Computed example of a mutant assay.
Amino acid sequence: MNYGIVSQEQLEQINEILTEKLIKIGVECVIMIDMAGNIITTKDNGASNYDVYSFAALAAGNFATVDAMAKLVGEQEFSLLFHKGEECNIHFSKIDDELLLISIFGKDISLGYLRLNVVDAIDKINNFWDKE
């Protein structure tokens, strides 16, 4: 699949998956980016005010840095990252070698519950693209 060329119908299906699996459980904002920091799509709860473009660029750099650290310790990769704050948390997970899913969520959602829903969303997205 060429992620640079995504049809409106494909984006709608992806957004539906992100809404059902993540936004509806209380995630504030979800951003799907490529590894260069280009936004594929973004969904939010209607109340978030994040600068998703700056966030996407910084997230791609952060993930690339951690990927380099993984190789330094003998790992092929770290496929997910998690940053915990007092009020806000950020979860990064690879969809595949080219795409990253970023979830921004508050302290009212447990990391385990979020991870289950992220894995399910990624499976649905990958199944969707496998059928294309």
Rank of each mutant, 00 (worst) to 15 (best):
Y3G: 04
Y3V: 06
V6D: 07
S7Q: 05
S7G: 07
E9V: 11
Q10H: 11
Q10P: 01
Q10S: 13
Q13K: 15
I14G: 07
N15R: 15
E16G: 15
E16W: 03
I17E: 12
I17N: 13
L18P: 11
T19D: 14
E20T: 04
E20P: 05
E20F: 11
L22I: 09
L22E: 06
K24E: 11
K24M: 06
K24P: 00
K24I: 07
I25C: 06
I25M: 15
G26W: 06
V27G: 03
V27D: 03
V27E: 05
V27N: 02
E28P: 00
E28Q: 11
C29A: 06
C29H: 08
V30S: 03
V30K: 00
I31H: 03
M32Q: 09
D34P: 07
M35Y: 02
M35P: 00
I39Q: 05
I39P: 03
I40C: 01
T42W: 06
K43E: 11
D44E: 09
N45F: 05
A47T: 10
A47L: 14
Y53P: 00
S54V: 10
S54F: 01
F55T: 04
A56G: 04
A57Q: 06
A57E: 03
A57F: 05
A57L: 08
L58I: 09
G61W: 08
F63N: 08
F63Y: 11
A64W: 02
T65N: 08
T65V: 08
V66L: 12
V66N: 09
A70R: 01
A70F: 02
A70W: 00
A70D: 00
K71W: 00
L72E: 01
E75L: 12
F78A: 13
L80A: 10
F82E: 10
H83C: 15
H83P: 06
H83Q: 13
K84P: 02
K84Y: 08
G85K: 02
G85Y: 13
E86G: 05
E86L: 05
C88S: 15
H91L: 14
I95T: 00
D96N: 15
D96C: 13
D96F: 02
D96G: 01
D97I: 07
D97C: 07
D97A: 15
E98H: 10
L100C: 10
L100D: 03
L101R: 03
S103H: 05
S103V: 02
S103Q: 06
S103T: 12
G106H: 14
K107V: 10
D108Y: 12
L111Q: 15
G112L: 04
G112N: 13
G112P: 02
G112F: 12
Y113C: 01
L114M: 14
L114W: 06
L114V: 06
L114Q: 04
R115K: 14
R115W: 08
L116H: 04
N117M: 08
D120M: 11
D120A: 14
D120Y: 07
A121S: 07
I122K: 11
D123C: 04
D123H: 04
K124Y: 02
K124A: 14
I125G: 02
I125K: 02
I125E: 03
N126S: 12
N126A: 13
N126P: 01
F128V: 09
W129A: 00
W129S: 03
D130C: 03
D130S: 12
K131A: 10
E132G: 09
